[in-house]
Nucleic acid binder design. Sequence first.
DNA 1: GCGTAACCTTACGCACGAGTAGGTATGCTC
DNA 2: GAGCATACCTACTCGTGCGTAAGGTTACGC
Lengths: 212, 212
Amino acid sequence: MSTPPAFKRLPRAVREQQMLDAAVKVFSRRGFHAASMDEIAEDAGISKPMVYAYLGTKEELFVACLHREGTRMMHAIAGAAAPDLPADVRLWRGLKAFFGFVGAHRDGWAVLYRQARGEQPFAGELATMRARLVEVVAGMLDHALRTEGREVAGTDLEVIAYALVGATESLADWLADHPEADPERTATRMMNAAWLGAGQLLHGVTWRPPSD
Amino acid sequence: MSTPPAFKRLPRAVREQQMLDAAVKVFSRRGFHAASMDEIAEDAGISKPMVYAYLGTKEELFVACLHREGTRMMHAIAGAAAPDLPADVRLWRGLKAFFGFVGAHRDGWAVLYRQARGEQPFAGELATMRARLVEVVAGMLDHALRTEGREVAGTDLEVIAYALVGATESLADWLADHPEADPERTATRMMNAAWLGAGQLLHGVTWRPPSD
DNA sequence: GCGTAACCTTACGCACGAGTAGGTATGCTC
DNA sequence: GAGCATACCTACTCGTGCGTAAGGTTACGC
């Protein structure tokens, strides 16, 4: 017989990435509980015990997904954050990087922000990442304020930062559901809403991206 | 024997509300899947078959929660929306009503926006409610624009409205996790961020609530 | 060419929780 | 105070899906 193998033997590191790819895909479509380990294994082109051998239990697998996608996102944004630029340019670059990432990794985004938020064991993990991001934004605002010689209570800054992050996430969700939408254009719209505010926009003021 | 009953017989309508209260509480703490019908029944002070008899399956029960909380929220906001007021006042009143609601119904909020979002069968339901809200906000902006004799593409308006709603939801989440925070104060902060924008705020401009 | 270790499989145990069958008590109506 | 509807219970069935035991197969060192 010697059935033609058809399944190649691959080194662990490669299989792990394939498994994570499959897991992100299935988790994002079905949700954490509705996703079955069997489906993830099948989608990865591997059998279930391999998943357990490499990535551990279902929860551990999900956390692994969370970490990989979260790290990727943070990296994508970090590259855009030169601390000595003016605040609006930094914000613009951060937004552009962020929406670019979401546009390119819609599944990863769905796992991170649609699934992890409600499920008890992961909400904390997610909240930590979110808090780091809020911290960064708040720090940026604070820096800009000090440059102008002004000061604002920490709580106020944090709340404004929260609103900014929330608005951005909301648009990211919109982007994830509209495959035809352009990430950069979405970033521009977000910048308008965030930087100018509704009041200004209603009076015809608009913000335009720098020539870069 | 005639064991002292200790459990009173109550009319259906009352029990249904108790069950919904318990369901909202348990769903918000555990999430849809992790919540068990047994726990909900126990929390409502009733046995499981009663829950099935009155509210149907687990999914139907969750949808019932969704509808009750959603309706309550819409009612709370609707009361504040007098269509002939200026846009900033309408926005302010809507925000005040919304944050007031979330502050008073933190569990309900958690069910609506943290649980329903990720779970496949309910995401659509939730998205519909959300879309209605976005529509209302976009309509408000459009109305304000026409009053000034200006016009903006529909998509742009929708996106701005999305950002506004997202920012508000994000702050609502923050509020739900900070029991000591004051809803009205949070609404003021949101109004500042939304109406003036980060750029204005950095230059020291602030928005203050009208004397009412 | 042969051991050994890593890769990979099929097939199962087992717990948990949704949903139900069938029966008991209470109160309301005439 | 008989009849009937409604409120309510204990105790079960059964599917589903996580996690694993025990055994095949391919590559690689020596």
